[in-house]
């Protein structure tokens, strides 16, 4: 077949390539279903899809409020809200991890809330059209996937604002393996509080 000189590149294809590269780099592997879910999440969030409209006075619906709404909602609506909450937390804590460090709500909060939403969703009997283990995996490996998204963010935005201090703070807050590796690349071996060793 003749080579197509100008090839189309949709956001999905772009993010799939970036995601595969980041996963390979971080030695993270997952099922094709979860990988497809992450690619769709990236493409959708960059387009601004899927998140519920904020209440007056808020830039976005706070995660805790979303969780409370979800628990009170009917089964289908609950699944939708939990998914929006998990997606929002994963996207924000992965894609905007560095900017989150400068806000009042920290990364650990986003990752805890997101993991909780996906965990709850994995137990719901709601047909959202995804393989049943996708949400369980997203919950159990939330920090790993957020790290992958973080690398995609850096490659896509081409912004490298990962100062040593931010990386260190991220590692302290979340135990992110990626932050630890990046710190190691900068010649810093992170040790946890109470390890009794200098750092």
């Amino acid at each position: 077949m003749a080579l197509k000189l100008v090839r189309e590149e949709s956001p999905m294809e772009f993010f799939r390539e970036q995601l595969e590269r980041a996963m390979e780099h971080q030695r993270v592997s997952t099922s094709a279903f979860t990988e497809h879910y992450l690619v769709s999440l990236l493409a959708g969030c960059v387009r601004g899809d899927g998140l519920p409209a904020p209440d007056p006075g808020y830039d976005e619906v706070p995660l805790a409020l979303l969780y409370a709404q979800a628990l009170r909602a009917s089964r289908h609506e609950r699944a939708r809200l939990l998914r929006a909450m998990g997606d929002s937390a994963l996207f924000v804590s992965g894609f905007f991890a560095d900017s989150l460090n400068r806000t009042l709500v920290d990364l650990a909060y986003y990752r805890a809330m997101g993991g909780q939403a996906y965990a709850r969703l994995s137990r719901e009997d709601a047909n959202l059209g995804y393989a049943p283990d996708v949400f369980g995996e997203l919950s159990g490996r939330f920090t790993e996937f957020a790290d992958v998204l973080s690398e995609v963010s850096e490659a896509s935005r081409l912004v490298s604002d990962r100062s040593v201090l931010q990386l260190y703070e991220r590692w302290v807050q979340t135990g992110s393996r990626r932050a630890a590796v990046l710190l190691a690349e900068k010649g810093i071996a992170p040790v946890g509080p109470g390890d009794g060793r200098p750092h």
Binding site: K4, L5, E8
Partner: peptide
């Protein structure tokens, strides 16, 4: 485009 065609490479619009 000429260069890419000669070297049998495809190109995206962003790259162009």
């Amino acid at each position: 485009l000429h260069f890419c065609a000669r070297t049998s490479r495809s190109v995206t619009q962003l790259e162009l």
